[in-house]
């Protein structure tokens, strides 16, 4: 139960994202006679203020949030891990600079920074990915650096240095494989926060542009009709809630399995 239901939700999310193109969706078709029609009157999930089908739009929004989350987490995990482990391993001046940069990034509320960056870069889904990745790498870098600081004291690292292994090989073969467990846990929780952040940026109009669909922009469109057509907010809102909840539940589970200290 604790694993199966969240896993099913996430599978559905991923399937919707991958198969959205093949489903023959029509998220932009306007049917003027069905404007603001609630779910019990027409369609599966009703229609929005322009007479577009919410089911199609929610699936299209799933696709947006899934790919944004995937890209942002991959980019920031790779960049953050590399920066963090190199900085931790080299130490000295490089490390001091990196630590200061991380501190500065952490001093800003992440979403504000992302808003500012997205604002500078201009609206668009590609820019959302860039903005969120620029904020997201910091967490991975900090975690990777802390792990490397303790791992590099291990004797197998000293043995590798004594054998004449190059730094690149030591970082890639002796350090990063050993810190994957906490990073995978961090990445899982990262997915949840990215889904929310993307929705937030889209809500503010900095993400996908009309008429393309995103859960965030759907919620924004719905707020104006909250009292007459609450389903416009509830449908994308519930979709997001389910995904974030599922990710967090699975993340907890994963952390319990990977964290040896809890065994």
């Amino acid at each position: 139960m604790r694993v199966k239901l969240p896993a099913a939700i996430l599978l559905l999310w991923a399937a919707a994202a991958v198969l959205a193109g093949a489903l023959g969706l029509d998220p932009d078709r306007i049917r003027l006679e069905l404007i603001l029609a609630p779910p019990w009157e027409a369609g599966w999930l009703g229609y929005d203020d322009l007479g577009r089908p919410l089911l199609d739009r929610v699936i299209a929004g799933a696709r947006t949030s899934f790919w944004v989350a995937l890209w942002v987490v991959s980019l920031s995990a790779v960049a953050g891990t590399l920066i963090g482990s190199i900085s931790g391993y080299l130490g000295g001046k490089v490390d001091r600079v990196v630590v200061h940069v991380i501190d500065i990034f952490l001093a800003f509320p992440g979403i504000l920074l992302a808003i500012a960056l997205a604002g500078i870069l201009g609206p668009g889904i590609g820019n959302v990915v860039i903005a969120l990745s620029l904020v997201g790498w910091v967490g991975f870098a900090r975690l990777a650096r802390a792990q490397v600081l303790s791992l590099k004291q291990r004797e197998h690292v000293a043995a590798a240095i004594a054998l004449g292994s190059r730094r690149r090989r030591i970082i890639l073969r002796h350090l990063i494989p050993l810190l994957s467990a906490p990073l995978i846990v961090e990445a899982t929780f990262g997915v949840a926060s990215i889904v929310i952040a993307e929705a937030g940026l889209s809500f503010l109009g900095l993400g996908v542009q009309p008429p393309a669909a995103s859960w965030g922009s759907m919620i924004r469109d719905g707020t104006r009709y909250l009292l007459v057509a609450p389903h416009m907010v509830l449908v994308p809102g519930l979709a997001m809630l389910l995904v974030v909840l599922a990710v967090n539940l699975l993340g907890d589970r994963l952390r319990d399995r990977m964290d040896v200290r809890l065994r």
């Binding site: 004797e155 043995a159 002796h174 494989p177």
Partner: peptide, 21 residues
């Protein structure tokens, strides 16, 4: 780095001196 092949070390703890992966 080149010279390192001529002098090696064996550690006390055979558990932490090898990469478990």
């Amino acid at each position: 780095r080149r010279r390192r092949r001529e002098f090696q070390i064996i550690f006390q703890d055979p558990f932490s001196s090898m990469n478990p992966r």
